[in-house]
Design a protein around this nucleic acid. Structure first.
Lengths: 100, 100
DNA sequence: AAATACTATATTGCAAAGCTACATAGATAG
DNA sequence: CTATCTATGTAGCTTTGCAATATAGTATTT
């Protein structure tokens, strides 16, 4: 799996996964891992960045199967950003198709 | 234009542009600029890298309109690489589509 | 003759983002 | 009590595009 392709696109994937329902980090890692290899820890960096920029907020929920889970929820700003980024991505893919 | 999306994909674009005919750096920059913004100089780094790894070789041709042009030609290794990378890209795009 | 602009190649320093490896920690099964 | 699964998090590295800049040939304008 080409690591360079992922740059930027992973952020969009995380945001998109959160549009339907709140999820915690490990859960997101598992969902995205079904489509591509993603290193443990990679998503936590993205999630921290998204939180710093107020695209998501978080809350803790205790778990019976291990440590507490930190859930991530899209903010209004995050929803707008997800939309923009998705449009940009689809446009980008079309432009690449022209060149290859 | 999201700079992160370009990582890796630009290399594929350059390789793909060379599959039909040899081209020089400035010419490639102009062709790719029709689809996306790309900074002057960016492609020269990619081209140097591609040459170091024997995906392309080069030859100089004098020009009436300015300095000599350095043409880039795909090697057999480069053709194989372009094919692999293209397949990987198309697969990647499909997987992202599942996630968003 | 000098300044400007277009064509053309190339390098330097910077920033973004994923990867590897590692650290921490609760719960549970053997 | 050790291993394993769940779960979050950090440090250092690498790759790669960008901005800025340098160099240089040719042509046109002032």
């Amino acid at each position: 799996m080409n690591a360079q392709f992922k740059k930027g696109a992973l952020e969009l994937c995380v945001l998109s996964q959160l549009t339907d329902k709140d999820q915690y980090g490990y859960e997101l890692t598992e969902a995205i891992s079904e489509q591509m290899t993603v290193a443990t820890g990679t998503l936590y960096l993205i999630l921290r960045r998204l939180k710093e920029e107020d695209y998501v907020d978080t809350y803790l929920v205790e778990s019976l199967e291990g440590p507490a889970r930190k859930y991530y929820r899209l903010t209004e700003k995050g929803r707008n950003y997800q939309n923009e980024l998705k449009d940009e991505w689809l446009d980008f893919v079309k432009r690449i198709a022209v060149l290859i």
